[in-house]
């Protein structure tokens, strides 16, 4: 209620619809809404991810030259897609925190980092497992692989900075600045890595580009699995952000206790 008065005074120009959207950045409203949305998100996740993976694993033909190993793309490709998109989402929420100071936004970025790093690790591991039968090696300094390793390092730095700072607002400010600057350098690294190892591999030999040549038999369950991973991310993000909001509330209650005692 109090938040709405502030919003009205500062954001009238953006129109009512925008206004209504921003109000969900209030922690209390967010908790109420996310509590209602969560079961639906879980349901959507289950009805896309489970059939997508089962279809992909058991009801697609074995590829002639790869054998069964090709089926790892149903985990590898969605997790890679998520790993990148989660960083982009963190960039957006960090900017929202820096510009509009919505607490939920900062906490959502913190919550997303943990999921993002997990997706990156899954992507790297499944890539290595798949790379062994396909290329005869677990690791190659392919531009794509290297980019994901660098992305992993950026996630690690971002999370370490969150963990190191006690004051939650200070941590939110500094990690947001790091996320913005880091995004620029991550993008630069992507180009640098392409430049660094051009010509050694004949373009990207695995991952997304390949799907354009893949027949629909493989493509359709893959799309379903990617959508399923997207919903999985939404579910995990909501759960983790709710945890962070509760942790922050605990922090606020304890601070208030100390103030009353003092």
């Amino acid at each position: 209620m109090s938040q709405s008065t502030t919003n009205r005074s500062t954001k009238r120009s953006l129109g009512q619809r925008m206004n209504a959207l921003w109000e969900y950045a209030n922690p209390v409203k967010f908790m109420a809404l996310s509590g209602k949305v969560l079961p639906w998100a879980v349901a959507l996740c289950v009805i896309t991810l489970v059939p997508g993976l089962i279809w992909g694993f058991f009801f697609t033909p074995e590829a002639a030259n790869f054998g069964n190993s090709v089926k790892i793309i149903y985990v590898h490709v969605p997790s890679s897609t998520m790993a990148i998109n989660i960083w982009v989402m963190m960039l957006v929420t960090s900017l929202i925190w820096l510009i509009r100071r919505h607490h939920v936004s900062a906490l959502a970025a913190k919550a997303a980092a943990m999921i993002g790093v997990t997706m990156t690790v899954i992507s790297l591991i499944t890539g290595a497992v798949w790379g062994q039968p396909m290329w005869g090696t677990y690791w190659a300094w392919d531009p794509r692989l290297t980019s994901f390793l660098i992305l992993f390092l950026f996630y690690l730095g971002y999370m370490a900075l969150w963990a190191a700072i006690e004051n939650p607002d200070t941590a939110a400010d500094l990690t947001s600045v790091l996320c913005v600057v880091g995004s620029v350098f991550a993008l630069l690294s992507r180009y640098a890595v392409n430049f660094w190892n051009q010509g050694l591999h004949q373009g990207a030999s695995l991952s997304l580009d390949k799907e354009e040549h893949v027949s629909d038999v493989y493509w359709q369950p893959l799309v379903l699995a990617i959508i399923g991973f997207g919903f999985l991310f939404v579910v995990l993000l909501l759960v983790r952000t709710r945890t962070e909001v509760r942790r922050r509330r605990l922090h606020a209650l304890m601070a208030r206790e100390r103030m009353i005692d003092a």
Partner: peptide
């Protein structure tokens, strides 16, 4: 130590080029 973790990834493009 934390600073090394933050700074070294940022050094990657400069180092590569």
């Amino acid at each position: 130590l934390l600073m090394s973790l933050l700074v070294l990834p940022l050094y990657i493009p400069t180092l590569i080029f």
